[in-house]
Design a protein around this nucleic acid. Structure first.
Length: 187
DNA sequence: TAGGCCATCTGGTCCT
DNA sequence: AGGACCAGATGGCCTA
C-alpha cells in the first residue's frame, strides 16, 4: 500500500483561472451514486446535483469556448468523475463503520468526525476488555494474556503521550461511554 | 442568521 | 503518463 508520508504541500490559491472547466459541469447523471442516506427531504446527492447545476464551485463566466483545449477539459471531467467515485467509496466505508459502532443516537446519523472518534474509543474499549478478560481467565504464564498485555503496552508506548489514566483499561470504557452520552445529547 | 456538515470541483503531488 | 491521493475553495442544506 502507499505510504503517504509527504510534507505538507503548498497549494496555490485556485482563483478563477481563465478557463476553468468547472462551471461547465454538465448535467450528467450520477453514475455511481449509491443510495445515500438522506438527512432531510432531499438526498445529499440530489442536493449536490442541484449545487452543481448552480455551477458547482467555480465561478462561471470566466471561461469561454476558446478557453481550455477540449482534450484537457475531457481529462478534467474524467478526473472529476474518478474523484467522485473515490469519495463515494470513502463514504460507503464511513457508512459501514457507522453500522458496526454501537451508539445511542440512532435517530441521527453520526457525522464523520463523530464516527472516527467513536470508533477509535470503541476499539480501545474492546481492547481493554479483551485484555482484562484474558488476564483474568489466564493468570498463568501460558496463553495469550501476557502477550496481549505486552502488545498493548507496546501500542501505548508507540502512541506516546498517554497519561497514566489512559493506560487503565477501565478508562477507555468510561471514555467511550461518556462519549456516547455526549453525542446523544447532541453536544 | 450563524455555524456545522457535506458534496463537488480543482490543481498539486506522489506512485505505479 | 495516468491514476490515486490530498487539501483548499465554494456553495447548499440543516439546525439551534
Amino acid at each position: 500500500m502507499k505510504t503517504k508520508n509527504r510534507p505538507p504541500r503548498r497549494r496555490v490559491p485556485a482563483q478563477d483561472t481563465d478557463a476553468t472547466p468547472g462551471e461547465q459541469t454538465p448535467d450528467r447523471p450520477q453514475p455511481g451514486s449509491g443510495p445515500e442516506l438522506t438527512k432531510g427531504l432531499r438526498s445529499r446527492t440530489a442536493r449536490a446535483q442541484g449545487a452543481r447545476a448552480e455551477g458547482g464551485r467555480r465561478r462561471p463566466g470566466s471561461s469561454g469556448p476558446g478557453g481550455r483545449r477540449e482534450s484537457s477539459v475531457q481529462r478534467r471531467l474524467e478526473s472529476n468523475e474518478r474523484e467522485r467515485q473515490r469519495m463515494h467509496k470513502l463514504n460507503n466505508a464511513f457508512q459501514a463503520l457507522r453500522e458496526v459502532i454501537p451508539h445511542v443516537r440512532a435517530d441521527k446519523k453520526l457525522s464523520k468526525i463523530e464516527t472516527l472518534t467513536l470508533a477509535k474509543n470503541y476499539i480501545k474499549s474492546l481492547t481493554a476488555t479483551i485484555l482484562t478478560m484474558s488476564s483474568g481467565c489466564l493468570p498463568g504464564l501460558d496463553g495469550p494474556g501476557p502477550k496481549l498485555y505486552q502488545h498493548y503496552q507496546q501500542q501505548q508506548a508507540a502512541g506516546g503521550a498517554l497519561g497514566a489514566a489512559e493506560a487503565q483499561p477501565e478508562s477507555h470504557l468510561q471514555k467511550y461511554s461518556t462519549q456516547i452520552h455526549s453525542f446523544r445529547e447532541g453536544s
